[in-house]
Nucleic acid binder design. Structure first.
Lengths: 210, 210
DNA sequence: GTAGTTTTTGCCTGTGGGTCGAAAACCTCG
DNA sequence: CGAGGTTTTCGACCCACAGGCAAAAACTAC
């Protein structure tokens, strides 16, 4: 989340193929590292992203034609960069709103959209929101994050009730001073856990009660 | 689904590493094929599985130590073999109930469990059942399939209502002759579509009505 | 015709999300 | 200091829908 919008970090390719096109940051796998270690290494070294709120594997792409120059496999990951982190990205790298992507190299456009869809789905039935939100926030602030990520309106009433009932959020007891316009001071909340929690209790065709 | 149980096709390794251990069928990727083509080729050639009701990518495993002999990446797929298909599997290959797996080679045990979990989740909110069921079936028969796959009881009443309401099932109009024990003849149903349909309407925090 | 079996249907209940409006708690200005 | 404006919070209602139960339906066997 950057500037109230869902954005993705892209860099501009400096060589063929797809010279000049924007593409996802990444790189080759070393002999002695796991896939996840490799992603983290590339992000840290190349775009100064040294911390991730969440990282999960998306999909592996391997069509023979995806790179016109040579056969290349890519395993895509969805990484969520903490909102309070401002990495010192190089000159040819920028945040791009996911809703208005430029021309992307390879199959990266479909990867970005798959990542967006995965995020949207998980926001709905997990506590993934923790990875978008600051440590402490009001319900209205959280609502704006959800609206930006989901792409549709969300009622603050409903959001609060759903996330509280599920035990995803908890009140801190603190409240935030109202702005100059006044208004009732908003209660501050935090995510009970800042790691992905799987809650399968929302499945249909559940097991019988006892 | 084999013999009323969820089973997985495994073969016994004939060489190191993990000689003698059971493992998932598969093989190396050729230069000019997609990942999916490769999976289908290996299944057809090696275990005579020439048709799949459904095939989807699961995850890619790449830990440096997963193969003690050499660095090896593997992309795992979940493939559902039609119930009416009886492939002529070679001598060293057998179906194994997922609930009682033998010692598996590499990280294949975790792959099988991930596949099972993916299947269970998707049964609940998609029409994935089509891939387990015969072309036409009664609700009781379908119920048994779901019980076997989900690992817990499912009420026929509820199953019928849920799947009908969602438009996943449709009645054929035919009925099945009762057995010798009698009983009301059961209506026959089929899946409206036999391809994976994504129904996102079951998400929480849906978009507002209009 | 009666008893037994299996499937189907209807009803009732509870849970939980969606919606709306009122109340609460603050500000500013006159 | 009170009135009006603003923002947040809470409560009340509605409704969709899944879970559970029991009765009804439709058959076989004796």
């Amino acid at each position: 989340m950057r500037e109230g919008r869902l954005q993705v970090l892209l860099w501009q390719r400096a060589r063929q193929p797809f010279l000049g096109a924007w593409s996802l940051p990444g790189g080759y796998l070393e002999d002695d590292e796991t896939l996840e270690q490799s992603i983290r290494r590339h992000l840290a070294v190349k775009v100064d992203v040294r911390e991730l709120a969440h990282l999960e594997q998306l999909e592996t792409l391997g069509d023979p034609g995806r790179n016109p120059q040579e056969r290349e496999l890519a395993t895509a990951y969805l990484g969520l960069v903490p909102a309070d982190l401002d990495p010192a990205v190089p000159e040819d790298t920028r945040w791009h709103p996911v809703s208005r992507l430029p021309e992307l190299a390879f199959d990266h456009r479909s990867i970005v959209l798959a990542g967006r869809d995965r995020l949207r789905a998980k926001l709905s039935y997990t506590n993934t929101g923790f990875a978008l939100a600051p440590p402490v926030f009001t319900i209205s602030e959280l609502r704006e994050l959800y609206v930006a990520a989901l792409g549709h309106e969300v009622s603050a009433t409903n959001l609060q009730r759903v996330l509280l009932r599920r035990g995803v959020l908890e009140a801190t007891g603190e409240r935030r001073e109202p702005g100059r316009a006044g208004g009732r001071p908003a209660a501050l909340y935090r995510f009970r856990s800042r790691r992905l929690e799987i809650t399968d209790e929302f499945a249909v065709l559940r097991p019988p009660e006892r």
